[in-house]
Nucleic acid binder design. Structure first.
Lengths: 246, 246
DNA sequence: GAGTGGTAAGAGGTTAGACCACTAGACTCG
DNA sequence: CGAGTCTAGTGGTCTAACCTCTTACCACTC
C-alpha cells in the first residue's frame, strides 16, 4: 500500500498524488488514520518534512485533517459540509455573490427576452419540469437539484447571446455550487422559487425584456433573502449548541 | 509588513492567515514575488520548514505558485483564472465586451460612490492626472495610455468592494487591452473621454451613486460609439483601397 | 468499587544546519 | 557579435534532535 514514490516532479507533489490515488481507490476510507508521520515517511522512502508538506497540501484541500497528539485522518469530502467555522467568511463573500448574480442575471434575462429562440425556450421549460420532478422523488438528490437550478439560469445567460456574460455566469454558479450555497432545500422555498422561475419564463415567452428583467431581479433578491435567513438561523443554532456544551 | 506571527494555533496556519491578510489588503498583488524562503522565515521569526508548509497550503489553494530557482509568486484567484481560461476558448466580440462593460461598470460606479475612501478617491484623481500628462508627451506611448485608462476603471471596481466584480472587470479590461481596442487615440476622443472621466470622478467625490452610475453609463456608451465609428471608418477605407488596387 | 491524580508512550509541532538542483544573468571566449 | 560557461541566488531535500499535546494506564485515595 505504501510503496516508495516515483521519480518525476516535486517530492511532496508525488506524495500528494499517491495519497490521492489511495483515496480514489478507497484503500483509504473516510475516518481512517494514516500511519504515524515517522513511520509513513520511512514506508514512502522520504523524509518527514517532505511528507509533512504533502500532508499540509492535502489538508488545505480538505482531504485530510490533522489532530495534534492523535494522528492524521481522512476526512469527509468537502461536498458534505459542516464547516461552521467558515460561516463568517462565507457570509462576506455571499453578499458579493448575490450582488453579482443580480448584476449579471437581470441584463441576461432582458437580452434573452429580445432574442431567445423557440428551441431554447422549450429547453428552459423542460429544465424547470425536470427540476419539479426531481423535487417529487422520494429521496431528492441535493446535487441534482442544484445543477438543474443552475442549468436554468445558465440557459438564460446562453440565450442572451453574450459569450462573456455566459462564461462569467458559469464561473459564478460554479462558485455557488462548490460553496453549497443553494437555497432550494429551505422549507417553503421550493414553491416560491418555482413561481419565480415561471415568472421569468413567462417574461421570456412573451418576449418582454422589462418583464423578464423584473422577474429575474425579484428572483435573485428573494434567493438572497432566503440564503441569509437560513444562515442567521444556522448561526443561532450553532451558538446555542455551544452554550449547551458548557 | 512581515511582523512575527501571533500565538494561537499551528504555526504554519498562522503564517497562512497572515499571507491571506496581505493578499486581501492587496499589499501583495498578483505577480508579486515573495521574499526568498530563508529571508522570509527570518522576517516572520519562524523556521524554514514551517514557512514551507504554509507555502504548500497556499499553493494547494491556488493562491501562490512556486518556481524552482526563481521564487514564490502570487497568482490570480482561482475564479479569475477559470474565467480567463473559459474566455480563452470562447470567442468574444466587441459588442459583447462593451455590453459587459456597461453591465459591470455602472453598478461598480454606483457602489463605489457609496463606500469609496478618500485615499482611493485621491488615487483615482492622480491616475487621471497621469493620463492627462501622458497625452501631452511628445511621443505618447499607446500602451501606457491604455493601461492608465484601464487603471482608472479598475480602481472604481476595486472601490466598489465586490471581489467578483473586481476580478471580472480585470479580465474584461485585459481582453480589451490585448485586442488593442481602446478608443483613446481617435481624433477628438481625448477631450471627450477626459470630460466623461471627470464626471464619473465628480459623482464619486459627491458620493452620489445615481450621478456616478449615469456618468459611467454615458462613458461606456460614448466609448462604444467611438470604437464602432472608427471600425466602420477603417472598413470603408479598406474597401476603397481594395477598389483602388483594381 | 468509584473517583482521582500522576505518568509514560506515542502522536504531531518545530527547529537547526547542511547539501542538492534549478534558473537566470553575467561573463568569457571564439 | 554570438555561443558556451560560470556563478550567485533560488527552491528542494534530508537528518536529527527537541517540544507539546493526547491518550491510556495504573496506582492511589476515599
Amino acid at each position: 500500500m505504501w510503496q516508495p514514490v516515483g521519480q518525476r516532479g516535486n517530492l511532496s507533489d508525488r506524495i500528494v498524488a499517491q495519497v490521492e490515488l489511495l483515496l480514489r481507490e478507497e484503500r483509504l476510507k473516510v475516518g481512517d488514520r494514516l500511519p504515524p508521520e515517522r513511520e509513513m515517511a520511512q514506508l514512502l522512502g522520504v523524509s518527514r518534512p517532505s511528507l509533512r508538506e504533502a500532508i499540509r497540501a492535502l489538508q488545505a484541500q480538505g482531504r485530510l485533517v490533522v489532530k495534534h497528539g492523535q494522528g492524521v485522518f481522512v476526512c469527509e469530502p468537502p461536498s458534505q459540509k459542516d464547516l461552521r467555522a467558515a460561516l463568517h467568511r462565507a457570509e462576506v463573500d455571499l453578499h458579493d455573490l448575490f450582488a453579482m448574480r443580480e448584476v449579471l442575471e437581470v441584463p441576461a434575462a432582458r437580452w434573452a427576452a429580445e432574442k431567445i429562440s423557440d428551441d431554447a425556450l422549450a429547453e428552459l421549460r423542460s429544465t424547470l419540469e425536470e427540476l419539479d420532478a426531481a423535487f417529487d422523488e422520494e429521496a431528492p438528490d441535493f446535487e441534482r437539484l442544484a445543477n438543474l437550478d443552475a442549468a436554468f439560469h445558465l440557459g438564460i445567460a446562453r440565450a442572451a447571446g453574450n459569450h462573456f456574460l455566459q462564461q462569467t455566469t458559469n464561473v459564478l454558479h460554479d462558485i455557488l455550487l462548490s460553496g453549497m450555497e443553494t437555497t432550494l432545500l429551505i422549507p417553503g422555498r421550493r414553491e416560491k422559487s418555482r413561481r419565480e422561475h415561471l415568472r421569468i419564463l413567462a417574461g421570456l415567452t412573451e418576449r418582454d425584456p422589462a418583464l423578464a428583467a423584473r422577474a429575474a431581479r425579484a428572483h435573485v433578491r428573494s434567493a438572497r433573502r432566503a440564503a441569509f435567513a437560513r444562515m442567521a438561523e444556522e448561526q443561532k443554532r450553532a451558538a446555542s449548541s455551544l452554550l449547551d456544551e458548557q
